[in-house]
Design a protein around this nucleic acid. Sequence first.
DNA 1: TCCAATTGCATTGTACACAATTAAATATGA
DNA 2: TCATATTTAATTGTGTACAATGCAATTGGA
Lengths: 158, 158
Amino acid sequence: MTAKTKSSPTTPAAPAAGDLLRLDNQLCFALYAASGLVTRAYRPLLEPLGLTYPQYLVMLALWEDAPRTVKALGQALDLDSGTLTPLLKRLEAAGFVTRRRDTQDERKVQIELTDAGRALQARAAEVPAALACQLHLPLNEIVDLRATLQDLARRMKA
Amino acid sequence: MTAKTKSSPTTPAAPAAGDLLRLDNQLCFALYAASGLVTRAYRPLLEPLGLTYPQYLVMLALWEDAPRTVKALGQALDLDSGTLTPLLKRLEAAGFVTRRRDTQDERKVQIELTDAGRALQARAAEVPAALACQLHLPLNEIVDLRATLQDLARRMKA
DNA sequence: TCCAATTGCATTGTACACAATTAAATATGA
DNA sequence: TCATATTTAATTGTGTACAATGCAATTGGA
């Protein structure tokens, strides 16, 4: 997946035809690499909280809205139960959440925060700022980039 | 990791203090989600080539410059040998590359394309365009986004 | 009402991704 | 020259990520 466009004074040059497969010209690789870098930068910040990065995302979703079914979590995070079930089991083992069969519909599993899980939010509140300073980007650019990525995701899903 | 900045006419609003941990306000999640979406979009395009997405990235790197050591590939792709060694073994098993100990320094392993690996490039050349149309983004925006992500990666690594 | 279709989650199998560790080869400095 | 430090790739262990499949519960339509 490459970009093809006319050069403009403020836009980087589009790749020549012979360069279509160059790594540097792939948005997909830029995404993959940046995402990997950011995820890696989170690790030392989340370790003291006893969370991996995907677990942190799950906790973010639950702090925002709990209890939630596995399906709802999966929709919020674009993850399937193959990923979520073992992850949630580990979060339950760590004492941060409980997993209960829904009483009205036994297919559903409700994920609820424990007191420890709720208490973790205060410590986690320090993580975003700690990470932000590692990005070395002006804040307006961060907001812009985030919005662009969300726009891309929206378009791809439509 | 959130964005904090003053609102501007064209920039999305920065999150309020109480919203710092909201999923929608995390650049990290926007990156993670977009990257996941793009990777997933590649899968059906790469399957006929017998490649997974990370393998495709490795092949892109080798089409650009081969032979290469595992270390060089790791540097180009920000992956370590824990990830690369099994991946390269599978590429070798598929007949696309060979793995040879370097004669001058036996610690190094040279990864070289086979004829089949080289021939694969022509088929792979169709992938970027096929994917690009799934992004539903103007091309100048694609180039911009790519450049911004590369800038972010550069800054994080400095 | 009843049965087929659908849903929700768990499991299975495969491929990453990365920290920590290991073993062998090479480089470095006294 | 030789011992130590460093380098390179492989391995080990753990946690994702996702397609395919399985099972039980629920839904929907005849």
